[in-house]
Design a protein around this nucleic acid. Structure first.
Length: 423
RNA sequence: AGAGAGGUGGCCGAGUGGUCGAAGGCGCACGCCUGGAAAGCGUGUAUUCCGUCAACGCGGAAUCGAGGGUUCGAAUCCCUUCCUCUCUGCCA
């Protein structure tokens, strides 16, 4: 969410940013500025009434103390008008404030200067490519067939107990999941991220804090009985750990990592692209989150990108990095790098990590600030990224590492799996 | 899940209807004292919003878990709700 001060003072920057995103209608900004003006006028009027009412109340108190009950009671009658007036003013001020808040929640983050123009994923810019795409035999199989052939994942069983998109991992398949999670957590903590175990259900305030609510309400599973949401990513609980906080500069940066399952309704998805592990309702992901001083956020983003590069290099996966264009950028992000590994048998790139900086967009919603060197309170910058999301890593790994002898586990994972081959 | 107690500033803790945004203490900052430090002494020390100012500041409003209500006036009384603690129950 953009702060009111920022909107007031940077109207043209904001309009340019929204235009880049093809956001409509742009008139919303003028609407906000006008409403804000109205809010301040109403606030002023109300404050004046309340000041007068407070004054009268004090006088009445004094009179009672001095035993002048009669005079006091006379004054009481004079306060009735204040009371009525302040009540109606208070109500309209509340309405204005709520309307203003509502409008502000509809505005996405302003894209960073580096964000390319564009309307869809076709316009994302490839900024880095690494690794050889392996040449596989003609009879190489897609991961869902390998998973079934080696008894690693049972999609039908998941369908039976829950529904489509909730796979059951079995035997070496389950062990591979656990190995990847542990491997990622170890690498992340070695890089200075503190490991956290967080709840997998969050309340609406948390959903709002990171921007899932109200924007993506339909994408989250909810538990209406208790008014909770299943997390779509560990970003939500991890970042919200610091909601409503005033940090000291020396506490920053805060670097966290955590493994959680992620739950997504994925309403509207269909077709071959959701086959196998490509798109699931429940999947595992290890997330990294950083809370930074604004001036350090760019460097932090680069560090995170490099860290994820390191993970993929270890796994010996061919991958590329995309800088998302304005049209493909998430609602809350200012700049996003997507990591994609190449799925040889599907002949397509699969997104396995998304690393983003949010500037102060989430911090404003979270009310997460710090005291800077000048002792002034300032919103922090938040960043996060997947390091990594499991299913498509598994998909790529199965497909790219297959051979007539079976599937060769990458060396770095062997200490975690306890086996070198799936065969 | 049931019964009881409670939620006050960075922390502890007083405050049951009237100059209370809140005593006192701790902590912290600055100053005095000291060769230096400790101790001691003094001063200061919440946040948000609105207005005003070039700025320091000044004026006003709101905030004692959150939201409503009673009252001329609420930290204090009433209702709702969340959370914490104790006991009982249940349970991986």
């Amino acid at each position: 969410m953009l702060s009111l001060n920022y909107i007031r003072e940077n109207k043209h920057t904001i309009l340019a940013g929204l235009e880049k995103r093809q956001f409509k209608p742009l008139s919303i900004i003028d609407e906000i500025i006008a409403l804000d003006q109205k809010r301040r006028e109403q606030k002023n009027e109300l404050d004046n009434i309340l000041a007068q009412a407070n004054q009268k109340a004090k006088e009445i108190g004094m009179l009672f103390k001095q035993g002048k009950a009669e005079e006091a009671n006379e004054l009481k009658a004079a306060t009735v008008a204040f009371k009525e007036k302040s009540k109606t003013l208070q109500e309209s001020l509340q309405q204005t404030t709520a309307a203003l808040h509502d409008l502000r929640t509809q505005i996405p983050n302003i894209p960073h200067d580096l964000v390319p123009n564009g309307t869809s994923e076709k316009d994302n810019k490839i900024v880095f490519t690494e690794g050889e795409i392996p040449k596989l035999a003609d009879d190489a199989l897609p991961h869902w067939e390998l998973a079934s052939q080696y008894g690693l994942i049972d999609f039908e069983l998941g369908s039976k107990i829950t529904g489509a998109g909730f796979p059951v991992y079995k035997g070496k398949g389950a062990r591979l999941q656990r190995a990847l999670i542990n491997y990622f957590l170890d690498k992340n903590t070695a890089a200075g991220y503190e490991e956290m175990q967080v709840p997998h259900l969050v309340n609406a305030d948390s959903g709002f804090g990171t921007g899932q609510l109200p924007d993506k309400e339909g994408q989250m599973y909810r538990v209406p009985e208790d008014d909770l949401f299943l997390i779509p990513t560990a970003e939500v609980p991890l970042t919200n750990l610091y909601r409503n906080q005033l940090l000291q500069a020396k506490e920053l940066p805060i670097c966290l990592t955590g493994y959680t399952p992620c739950f997504r309704r994925e309403a509207g998805s269909y077709g071959a692209h959701v086959r196998g592990l490509n798109r699931l309702h429940q999947f595992d992901k290890v997330e990294i989150v950083r809370i930074e001083e604004p001036q350090n956020a760019s460097a932090a983003l680069e560090e995170m990108v490099n860290h994820v590069k390191g993970l993929l290099a270890d796994l010996q996966m061919p991958y590329r990095i995309l800088r998302l264009c304005a049209g493909d950028l998430g609602f809350t992000a200012a700049l996003t790098y997507d990591f994609e590994i190449f799925s040889t048998t599907q002949n397509r790139w699969l997104e396995i990590s998304s690393v983003s900086t949010f500037n102060s967009f989430q911090a404003e919603r979270l009310q997460l600030r710090y005291k800077n060197k000048q002792e002034k309170k300032q919103l922090v910058h938040t960043l996060n990224g997947s390091a990594l999301a499991l299913p498509r890593v598994v998909a790529g790994l199965l497909e790219n590492c297959q051979s007539p002898k079976g599937i060769k586990i990458p060396d770095v994972l062997v200490p975690y799996t306890g086996f070198e081959w799936i065969n």
